[in-house]
Design a protein around this nucleic acid. Structure first.
Lengths: 339, 339
DNA sequence: AGCACATCTGCATACGTGTGCAAGTAAATT
DNA sequence: AATTTACTTGCACACGTATGCAGATGTGCT
């Protein structure tokens, strides 16, 4: 009932036990049934809540998860943030946001900040300069999970969708649709996500004895994707289908095709994206896209991270989650494919 | 250079001073020039950084700002989050995210969590059950600033755009455009933001001796806004212009008008939004809208909050920032108005 | 020179919790 | 009955920093 700084000592006095006993009850250590009862009762009466900062100081680990994120333009990431925060909140953790740095010096700063706050774990999303950052935090013993991005060499956990398989699915789909001049505006070359989608896509095209008429790195950027679209359509072999590395760029591609070049989607050009952000379902775009199962990816991320926090010896995991191709109106639907 | 827990005591030993001296140097208290030099040098050599948790424990105030946010669907809020976090990071603060609760019990939990972490201040955005939450935190002595929402009675600081004036601007614009059947899909009735825009709008219409043909509460929700659109266009007086309480709903309105009802925007119906999120500039929507100056709103929010943190006696401020109407293609442009 | 005054410094303690250690108790074993 | 074993519990200390207090040092004044 009473407000204003009630500590474990107050609880202890009222329950007629020592402060250590109170601590043990609330930190999950063993205590006799009777002690637990007395302590809980006194605590409830006083409105006691353990101080997480004091707890963090003693244990060296706070109940804070550092989320490092570079940008929030792409709708996929705010939604990921929302779900991550909710999921972690349910487990008693909270998300401390770190805007990802561009230059070397800023990386330094963020790494230090993360360690200063003794974060229990780190999730990175949409980050460019991730190599250095993740490695250093891992070296410092802080569990790291990369969300929607992998890193081949080093033993760092990651959760992504099955990007190679996704790229392949889209290749099958566009080939079945009878397209003959297929182009690809890829995700950033520096991200595993972009590379894997591209590889799955081109390998599968090759399997159909086909080849992209153009492959351009879109850097996950609207403006660059728009310019890539102009280049592709002005080239010697204008595409009749474009697979775009993510939805965010795909919207720019569609805008450019329709408003700037006066072309029809999908009559002149089919467009396929990747992510299935909510906006993809809106009538203005109605984008055919490969869905990344956000909720399951978030669950996997949280599970992996918390497991690693609980058991530091746990080896790194690279989790891939399959997603379905969502058929909408931005791309010709082959005979027999059901929407 | 050395890693692994270097404390003020280590620095003190190396500098040949007491631990208190080190503390004073880093907490800005007074110290002789010579001491400062010795301490800084030793600190740099050892790679010392003050522990913010320990500091928070002793002072009762952490360098953490609690950001309470309900949803991130509306692009306006993730962008606000991004800018807020960046601005606060520059001032040495960090953002701890709290997903806003729907029910009473969850509010309780969030309030407690906020106090447990001894946040230095709180920013609320897009929150419904804000009354109780803000009041209790204010009572507990924690500075609160409401972002993009006001609260009339109680003395809580807020930063919004000039919503009444904005609504009025839009009324002038639509009247000048020669529209005769103007409707309004309002923002949520429970938010000051929605109410103010509506009031400015209808008052100004009245000033032109006009009246809305329909006013429907859209609750800032796409689905509800879409249904409102259907109702308005199926009514006895189908609108030739609709002012929508924010961009997020306006997109749904445009989708419904064009794809579902087969109407042309702006030939059949002009649509005007509020916010000017990036998406509004994309070709698929090209939405005429009243810009909320995000960067300046963020600056004002951070300034107000930090000022209140530094000086608790500072009275609450309600800051309103004017924004321009951005003329695009979704609404008829009156003669003489320049885009 | 003597005194008032301002400034700096170190000592000690506090913040609120977790945890090793030893003492205590009750139950189980020989 | 004596001894081992398994649990509890309280004591004391640690985590890393801030800060009141008293002593020390230096400056300016009459």
């Amino acid at each position: 009932m009473a407000e204003g700084k009630v500590t474990s000592l107050h609880v202890a006095r009222r329950a007629g036990v020592s402060q250590s006993a109170v601590s043990r009850v609330f930190s999950g250590a063993s205590a006799s049934e009777q002690t637990v009862r007395k302590v809980r009762k006194a605590a409830e009466h006083l409105g006691y809540r353990p101080n997480p900062l004091a707890r963090a100081m003693i244990t060296g680990k706070s109940k804070i998860i550092g989320l490092v994120v570079a940008y929030l333009d792409n709708q996929f990431y705010p939604l990921a943030l929302e779900h991550l925060s909710n999921a972690l909140q349910e487990q008693g953790y909270h998300v401390l946001v770190f805007m990802a740095p561009n230059d070397e010096a800023a990386v330094e700063k963020v790494v230090h900040d993360l360690m200063d706050y003794q974060v229990a774990g780190i999730i990175t999303a949409s980050v460019g300069m991730t190599n250095d950052l993740t490695q250093r935090c891992t070296d410092a013993g802080i569990p790291v999970v990369m969300f929607n991005r992998g890193q081949d060499g080093s033993g760092i956990s990651s959760v992504t969708s099955a990007n190679v398989a996704g790229g392949a699915q889209i290749a099958d789909f566009l080939v079945a649709g009878g397209h003959t001049r297929i182009a690809h505006i890829a995700g950033w070359e520096g991200s595993s996500t972009g590379r894997d989608r591209q590889r799955g896509f081109t390998d599968r095209l090759a399997h159909h004895a086909m080849e992209s008429v153009a492959i351009i790195d879109g850097h996950f950027d609207r403006e660059i994707a728009a310019q890539a679209t102009r280049d592709i359509m002005a080239g010697p072999q204008p595409a009749d289908a474009i697979f775009v590395g993510n939805d965010h760029m795909a919207f720019a591609v569609m805008d450019t095709l329709r408003s700037e070049l006066g072309l029809s989607v999908p009559d002149d050009v089919s467009v396929v994206g990747y992510d299935d952000v909510p906006l993809a379902a809106w009538a203005a775009y109605d984008l055919t896209t490969l869905r990344q199962p956000l909720v399951r990816m978030v669950e996997a991320t949280v599970d992996t991270l918390l497991a690693k926090i609980t058991d530091a010896a746990r080896p790194a995991q690279k989790i891939e989650i399959e997603g379905p191709l969502i058929l909408r109106g931005s791309a010709k639907i082959p005979e027999g494919w059901t929407a």
